[in-house]
Write a protein that binds this DNA or RNA. Structure first.
Lengths: 227, 227
DNA sequence: CCCGTTCACCTATCAGACAGGTCAATCATA
DNA sequence: TATGATTGACCTGTCTGATAGGTGAACGGG
């Protein structure tokens, strides 16, 4: 008749609710009106409202607690996200590697500038453990992960760290599954040490060039590996 | 009494549903049973099921179409995501800039290697529009966005493009709001052209150095701006 | 003053009903 | 016979009243 609304109600409510939060300048932990009140405010039924809330909850905008109410969830943080197709093909692996080159390269550049003595010690002991595992022929994938994580932390850039952390999951998904830890990455092993030494010496160019070698070595492995 | 379930129903249903998809090996576009059937299958009420569906929809696992049904949505893609606090402080702005340097720098490097004649023409006409708007004193933030988007596309790396696209939202959130388009970024204007010329000429080093100048100019603005 | 009860307020979930979108089979008409 | 409107089966969208159960503050007896 008159309602030519092709937009779902829950969607409208969801937006209205976000506006409401912004206009009232609600901050993390602030309580929203109860579902009853909200249905009155927006003139919709409970189900639509609940779907909207569930939607916002999935997007980490609100938090719903049984018996307590609905609470705002850190509106001052920005959630970046994206989807990438996981295709275990050479091209996808190489594309991932380019992103890693960009992000981790920057992290290493910053780390070499900013690393503290304490962090140097941490990474040092991490590498000692790395060497030990290697010599005993044990799996090094976990300690390798820790190493890169520590370097990223040394870059002292929370945003970069956050992106890298989220992306490291992708690396693992790509590299653990198809290629396995069958010692394919042995060639990258020595570069961890040379790179660390350069970082510890605050020698940015050397650190970057060692990282580049590490990445090149990875790239060669991917290119020569028959997938 | 007996039910010590602190886990919400919609959450259980949500997981069961994902298991169902995996076990049946449903692929993108496959149709799930109707809501009616699903309520029977899982033994839950309509509302719980719908909340679960809405939750999965928000997480891009399913797609709900009115009158048609519920469909599976590309399970083979990986969703990277993370949160960063948005603080309008110098340090946060500079941290964001570092990430941009890393990602967009790599994009420009790749674009300078891979850009096609067709893409060159597109960017050329984008820059013409940029110039026109600039000379007429109109807002250039939108066309600026388009420019960078086209360059990113020219890098021909879908993963990098996805990350950059998701991050560009962050840039805008940071830079549009506090600093506004009050012509603060006029200093970056000429670099767009020099950078483009280098990219079009497949001159990687020059493109990167021009991008570096652009970023340095941005950095100076941030550092000198009283926040 | 302490502790358990009670009560108001909320969310969780269900079931039934009605509205409206979608699509294909069916049927009337030129 | 071909075409176009109609109908009906199947779905999702949304509302509502009812019941269950979580939470915390006020209340009241020891």
């Amino acid at each position: 008749m008159k309602k030519i609304q092709k937009i779902h109600l829950y969607e409208q409510v969801s937006e209205e609710l976000q506006n409401y939060i912004q206009e009232k300048e609600l901050k993390e932990g602030d309580k929203l009106p109860s579902v009853e009140r909200l249905t009155e405010m927006f003139g919709v039924g409970r189900s639509s409202l609940r779907e909207a809330l569930r939607y916002l909850e999935a997007n980490e905008v609100v938090r719903i607690e049984n018996g307590k109410g609905v609470f705002v969830r850190d509106m001052d943080s920005f959630r970046f996200s994206g989807k990438v197709k996981i295709e275990v093909e050479r091209s996808s692996l190489l594309a991932t590697l380019d992103v890693r080159r960009a992000l981790e390269g920057k992290a290493i550049e910053l780390a070499a500038q900013r690393i503290t003595p304490k962090q140097i010690k941490e990474i040092q002991s991490c590498l000692n453990e790395y060497r030990r595992l290697k010599e005993n022929g044990q799996s090094t994938s976990r300690i390798d992960f820790t190493f890169h994580q520590l370097v990223n932390k040394a870059a002292a850039n929370p945003i970069l760290e956050s992106v890298l952390e989220s992306f490291s999951v992708l690396y693992n998904k790509f590299f653990d599954k198809p290629l396995g830890n069958a010692g394919l990455f042995d060639a990258t092993y020595p570069f961890h040490f040379t790179m660390f030494e350069a970082i510890a010496a605050h020698d940015v160019p050397t650190a970057l060039s060692e990282f580049d070698k590490l990445m090149n070595s990875l790239e060669e492995i991917i290119k020569s590996y028959e997938i």
